[in-house]
Design a protein around this nucleic acid. Structure first.
Lengths: 177, 177
DNA sequence: TAATTTATGTCAACACTGCTGACATAAATT
DNA sequence: AATTTATGTCAGCAGTGTTGACATAAATTA
């Protein structure tokens, strides 16, 4: 019994391409695109002793000032222990302040300070430049396709949440047309 | 001297929207899209005691069978110590085999086994479903816009590399038109 | 042939950011 | 008065990136 149908550890020399209709090309484009998209802020963050998680917190606190800790956890979908580490640092460094809730005094409303707002702008600028460059020459229809695609990649349960963020046309492009 | 121009730790109550022309909406769409895009394979990987790094290695070894360790490091842009950890596990579990280079016997050519190929298909299937759903109803022009955008997000130096992966129309959509 | 460079592997330590489990406090609700 | 809720905190672990140092075998150069 030598070499029956494909010995288990035989090297496969044929590249995978569109097996089963799977588009590996887009899968790896997502990897490359996201890696490079995050690389610019990552470098800046490192200069401040921060990481990517800090960017996310600063981003959403600037986007939704006054949101509570529980709401932030819901948006980020991480545990409170993960958040605590980075949030504490951002508060200690004066980028974010907590304000006790008025209705419910257990809640801590999170707000950016001027320092925190400027910090987000610093992080977002290179990403914005990259986005503008990637959209250069795209028609309005093309841009809509791109936004529709990105939104379509998000789990359906969360799309509503996205619509409620400032500057997003609520309910637009809900999938079917 | 009480409260001059914006006390440093004053909470800012105004949401950030399109300050300086920065599109925060697309920035956070990238975050949500990538997070959910990776969540499906992540769950499967966890069942096998693997992580996202294993997926990447299996992906590129299947896409470029016979590539050397140095070439894989170049594509992934990580250090050999990072790679060593996950590559060793994939070899020990029979997903990948190493073949000594013919021209240069120092090199280790990496190939997937049948097990490794099937594993990649298992990981890629849910991602492919998500992509197809997100592209549903898009015109050919819309799909081109989306691919052009993703490619445009990648650092220019690396775009050539992407073109050389199997199934990618080389040189297509190089930015200018 | 001898010396050097290259491709790869390995050991150790550290950083960041997820996770779980456990426990504490204050405020709201029942 | 008892319970639930919102938040905080301590401790430990996992995955994946990093740097630095050193080892080996094979290729290249002098």
């Amino acid at each position: 019994m030598k070499e029956r149908k494909g010995a288990p550890d035989e090297p496969i020399r044929m590249p995978i391409t569109i097996e089963e209709g799977i588009d590996f090309s887009i899968i790896e484009l997502m990897f490359f695109a996201y890696r490079d998209f995050t690389s610019d802020p990552d470098e800046i963050l490192a200069d401040y002793g921060f990481g990517r998680a800090h960017h996310r917190v600063v981003h959403f606190v600037n986007r939704l000032p006054g949101l509570t800790v529980a709401e932030l956890l819901e948006v980020l979908q991480i545990t409170k222990q993960s958040l605590a580490r980075v949030l504490k640092q951002l508060i200690d460094t004066g980028h974010i302040v907590q304000v006790q809730g008025l209705r419910d005094r257990r809640q801590r409303e999170l707000y950016p300070t001027a320092k925190g707002r400027n910090f987000l702008l610093m992080l977002a600028r290179p990403q914005s430049r990259r986005i503008h460059a990637a959209l250069e020459g795209e028609s309005a229809a093309g841009r809509l396709s791109i936004e529709r695609f990105l939104k379509g990649m998000v789990n359906p349960e969360l799309r509503a949440q996205i619509d409620h963020l400032p500057g997003n046309m609520s309910g637009k492009d809900d999938g079917k047309q």
